[in-house]
């Protein structure tokens, strides 16, 4: 019976598709949180597989900080068009204009934290009762504690010490009015799994992930892309380097790495040999030791 087993990518895929279908069946108005990063791209790809030959039955929700890489926006619009999916944009600029949040100031100012308010407002406005995200447990220590089905109270908050037990693959998405769920179908995937799967399924990605030339500055050991959104000190020197991005967040906080990897195979080789985690150069995680946990409790992704 030896050929009746699945390799790990097939098993992970089967698990994720099962979770995505449970979301569709258990919720009234679920959506996919789409950042344009590789994890949400893989999630969207899996959702498409889960309902084939029907169209993907979820809208894509993009929380737009206004500080995007242009490559991400192009990719987003192309994908939405290709899938025939609905796109919902929650704008951080709108939240600022309405006085819901206040823009950070200073050298390391970013709109990362502000996204939480915009996200929760968007969830309320569109009455979304479940948002799927591409977060993985191997990414970060607070995320290692996440459930597949993660309950959020009426304030959108996560209570990590009082999570529902999650047994076998029996997911409990029951909730009261006003509460919602975050669901993470690729919880068990590692960065390596994601890259291998992208290669195996030949999933198109934004160009940011491949080596390209770019003007950058070096700050706190991280290479940051020069753009109109990055506040710079007078003494910071701009270099033109061959770089790529391992993650794809907001422009001013996502660090690049020097790399010449221009194909998926080369990226996989680089990931396998890497001695740094992929979020190691995300400024948003570096604000404190528990930066992710603190943000997640508030309702962050």
């Amino acid at each position: 019976m030896s050929h009746y087993y699945l390799n790990h990518l097939k098993e992970l895929e089967a698990e994720s598709i099962y979770v995505i279908r449970e979301v569709f069946a258990q919720f009234q108005n679920p959506a996919i949180l789409f950042s344009g990063g590789k994890d949400s791209i893989v999630l969207t790809h899996l959702a498409r597989k889960a309902f084939f030959p029907a169209k993907i039955p979820f809208p894509l929700v993009h929380i737009d900080t206004g500080h995007n890489f242009p490559e991400t926006m192009e990719y987003r619009d192309w994908l939405v068009d290709a899938l025939g999916a609905k796109l919902i944009v929650g704008s951080v600029q709108d939240s600022i204009d309405k006085g819901r949040v206040r823009e950070e100031t200073g050298l390391n100012a970013s709109r990362n934290v502000l996204q939480t308010t915009t996200l929760l407002d968007t969830i309320e406005q569109y009455k979304l009762d479940c948002c799927m995200g591409g977060a993985r447990r191997d990414e970060e220590k607070a995320r290692a504690k996440e459930r597949f089905f993660s309950h959020r109270d009426e304030f959108g908050q996560w209570d990590p010490k009082n999570q529902r037990p999650e047994l076998w693959h029996l997911f409990n998405g029951r909730k009261n009015m006003g509460e919602h769920f975050r669901v993470f179908p690729i919880s068990n995937w590692t960065e390596m799994d994601v890259w291998q799967y992208i290669l195996h399924d030949n999933i198109p990605l934004p160009q940011l992930y491949f080596a390209h030339e770019r003007d950058v500055i070096e700050r706190n050991g991280t290479l940051l892309a020069v753009s109109e959104f990055l506040n710079m000190r007078g003494d910071e020197i701009v270099h033109n380097k061959t770089v790529r991005f391992r993650t794809c967040g907001d422009l001013p906080i996502t660090g690049a790495i020097e790399s010449t990897a221009s194909t998926l195979e080369e990226i996989i080789f680089e990931v396998a040999a890497s001695r740094q985690t992929e979020r190691g150069n995300r400024a948003d995680d570096k604000r404190s030791e528990t930066a992710m946990e603190d943000r997640k409790k508030q309702g962050y992704f």
């Binding site: 191997d138 220590k141 607070a142 290692a144 504690k145 999570q163 590692t190 799994d193 030791e289 946990e293």
Partner: peptide, 26 residues
């Protein structure tokens, strides 16, 4: 130990998932 309380108190409260691979298995 991933949560703030766990790190402060040196205890494990909840299930934490860890991932590693060798050339043979994940």
């Amino acid at each position: 130990d991933g949560l703030k309380d766990e790190r402060e108190q040196g205890i494990t409260i909840d299930v934490a998932y860890r991932y590693f691979a060798t050339p043979k298995r994940k």
